[in-house]
Structures are given as C-alpha cells and as structure tokens.
Design a binder for these strands. Sequence first.
DNA 1: CGAATTTGACCAGCGC
DNA 2: GCGCTGGTCAAATTCG
Length: 285
Amino acid sequence: MEPTCVDTSLNLNVIPSQHMNVAAEILVEELQRLSCENKRLTETLNHMWENYLALQKHLSEFSQLRNTNFEEEATPSRKRKVESENGINLFGNECEEETLFKRPKHNTSPKVSKVLVRTEASDTSLYVSDGYHWRKYGQKVTRDNPSPRAYFKCSFAPSCPVKKKVQRSVEDQSVLVATYEGEHNHAHQQAEISLSSSQSETIEGSVPASSPSLSPIMNRSAAGPTVTLDLVQSRSVDNAQKSSIHQQFLVQQMATSLTRDPNFTAALATAISGTFLNHTSTEER
DNA sequence: CGAATTTGACCAGCGC
DNA sequence: GCGCTGGTCAAATTCG
C-alpha cells in the first residue's frame, strides 16, 4: 500500500496580520477537524480492540478443541509424555516461529512470544530479567547463529510448563532475543518490568496476540522515563482487569507514537482511516 | 551442603 | 537408512 501523507501542518507565515480573524477561524476549523479525526481514531482503536478480543476468544476455543483431539489420538513418546504431563501440549493462540511449523506432528504450538532485550555490547551473558525465576537446563550453538542459545525452564513453580530460549540476535549482538513458550500457571513473582519508553521499538511480525507487550526492546542500561508493563500473563489476574490494562497500554502507545513522529502520524491516520472507512462501508451494505 | 549452572550425550524429527 | 539439527537430560562442577 502506498503511504499517503496527511498534511496537518499550519503555515502561519502566509496569514497577513490584518486577517487575524480569518486566521483564528482557520485555526478553530483546523482544531475541530483534528478533534473529529481524534475521535474517529479512538473509535477505530476501540473497534480494533473488540475485533482483537473476539479473535482471541475464537483461537482459545479452537485450541481447546485441538487439545481434546490431540489427547484422544496421540501416543506420546517418552519426551512428549513428559511435556503433556506438564501441560505443554496445550494448543496456544499464536505461533510465530517458522520452526514450529516444521514439526507439526509433535510440536503442539504452545503460546509463543518473543521479547528483544538490548544489553551492553560487552555483556556476554544470556540472562533476561523478566520477573520470573528461571533454571537453565541447556545451551546449544545453532546453525543459523554463531552465538549460543540458552534454554531455561520456569523454576518459580515446580509444575510451571513455561520455557524460555535466549539467544543473541544475528544482526545485532547487543540484542538478546528471548522466546517464551507456554503460559505460567502461577502468580507473577515480580509483576512489572521497566521499559525504556524513550527507546522502545516494535519488531514487525513478532507481536504475540496474547502478550500485553508490543515486543519492546528493553534497554537494561538506559536511564530516563520508563513505562511499567506486565509482560507476561498471569492467570491469577482478573481477565477484565487485564484487558483494561492492556487496552490502556495500547492507547498510551498509540498516543505516544502519534505525538512523537509526524510521519508516523500521517501514515497511521491514513491506514486507520482506510480500515475504518472500509469497515463502515461494508456495514452500510 | 544445597542450589544453580555447565556441558557432553542422547533422542526425535526432518530432508535427502 | 543416514546424517544433520534442535531440544532435553543428567552427571559433574561451581557458587553462595
């Protein structure tokens, strides 16, 4: 899609001083127009949020169905038996890694999410602090990446099925890529993670549907204003409350982006307006 | 001394 | 069937 730029700038230099009233009118009009657009964007965001929740619900239902079928059909091997005992064979909401599709027979697609963590270049450790307690159970050098991959299991609760893989990014050695699989079946140990809002970025294609985060790059060393965010889901948290927090965070992220980057503002406004207009036009039919 | 980490061996899936 | 690869296990080692 070709990005269309919406010019929201006001060229005050072209307005002569004797036409201040006219200029004021223009300003008021512009303000009203922006207010309308803002309202429309808010509505669009709410609509997208509702769609997202509906999709998540459908996926959840689908995964339960899949899981039931799996239990009836499968005769798990030794390893897989252990996994199913731990509940790791639950069919998750989202599957992002290509490798997960390569082994559909046994990989039952637990919920997978990726988090990128920026570290000091000199920091060679593979530890990502995320509020949970992890036990390292393996390390491997993989073919596609010269830096080793570390394997962790959540050790906060003995029966917790969540696993984590941590590896340095091929492109940027200072970035740690943490891949989480499964869902914690216990309360969050440290429910918050500090994110550097000034330096956080989103990575295309790595946003898990179930994760409240937008796959931020967390900067361990950066000082400055932080956004506190629950990165992982806890079953102990009330769903409605969780949704509310999530929605607030999304709105906050959106608002921050809109106010910060004029190009992004224009592109996003165009994209969302298009989606919104498409949606209303189909509803009218 | 118990917990955590390291590391080589092993296993299963996949492609050829 | 065989080799390659990713993932896991478990004994050995290190750490607090």
